[in-house]
Design a protein around this nucleic acid. Structure first.
Ligand SMILES: [Zn+2]
Ligand SMILES: [Zn+2]
Ligand SMILES: [Zn+2]
Ligand SMILES: [Zn+2]
Lengths: 159, 159
DNA sequence: CGTAGAATCGCAACATTATAACCGAAGGTC
DNA sequence: GACCTTCGGTTATAATGTTGCGATTCTACG
């Protein structure tokens, strides 16, 4: 079950779930969820708004962590590698993966008004790569889709 | 009919078609295809490999054009606005639109080996926005999809 | 024409995002 | 402890994109 991020919800459970899954994924892959990495993941999950790498720098600095770009980017790369976060190319920003372990394809809806990002269920789009592979005769590694518009909550408020 | 960019073809007709369509689109929209804009479009179309904004700077400089970032970005923004080119967010690069005038959705396959970008026909993906709109209750402006992998030509060569 | 308004362009500075290179620190293994 | 590997600190730099302002060019209209 995936949360609808545009509805009010107990976001602390989003964070808790994410951190718990992260630990499991790391263990499964023999990867070390160090303090910096864990804290970066928590900060990325602190809301459903994608966060820029440079937004994290002062937050980490406040907590006594080193805060130079390489520190943040290394943590982000680690989390990307394990599929715990996604990079939203159209925003140059990062957001937690709401169901880690999914395949090569991802799809997000991005509200232009409130900025929150909703990751979509894969059955809506994950056949695209397969269709394109057979149409073009290509081999596909990754598929990203980003939809931009206005979310239901913002639509309500503007009416 | 859309060209398969991974097959050998007479690329000058790609360019000619693109420039002709550009003139038509501009006329239709009361927009001015100035020298810089036209030349930027030609340069973007000079191959099927997406080109970075900063790659264009020296090329324009060689031809006596002003070559400061704003010049290039203004031309690119103009062309994006009219739908004559696309920006590939995952590459920070720009490529000509192979069928200008299409709707809010676009989809590209990007070969990681040769770098060429193939724009796909919309019937493969343009129902996604509609499905997401009804699923989430959102209003969608733009949809971008980028598929990364290996093209048929590069697959052949590696076997 | 001729002038007013709008669009375009030249230019300088700056902002944002990401990477390279080098080395020391920390942790795991024997 | 000796060794190896991974991780993190530090400095500098690269790559991409934007802002602001004034000069120029185009267009519309009288
Ligand atoms: Zn939440
Ligand atoms: Zn995901
Ligand atoms: Zn061609
Ligand atoms: Zn297109």
């Amino acid at each position: 079950m995936t949360q609808n991020v545009y509805r009010p919800h107990d976001h602390s459970t989003c964070i808790d779930n994410a951190m718990e899954q992260a630990k499991a994924v790391c263990e499964q892959n023999g990867a070390r969820l160090t303090k910096v990495r864990q804290r970066v993941l928590e900060l990325v999950w602190s809301s459903h708004k994608p966060v820029g790498a440079y937004d994290l720098l002062p937050l980490l600095a406040n907590e006594g962590f080193n805060s130079a770009p390489p520190t943040v980017y290394r943590a982000l790369d680690f989390l990307l590698e394990l599929g715990l976060i996604h990079r939203l190319a159209s925003l140059n920003a990062y957001v937690g993966c709401s169901h880690p372990g999914h395949g090569r394809a991802s799809c997000f809806f991005l509200c232009q008004s409130c900025g929150k990002a909703q990751e979509l269920e894969s059955q809506l789009y994950d056949d695209l790569s397969t269709r394109v592979e057979s149409t073009l005769g290509v081999k596909i590694d990754h598929q990203i889709t980003e939809l931009s518009g206005i979310c239901p909550s913002c639509l309500d408020q503007s009416s």
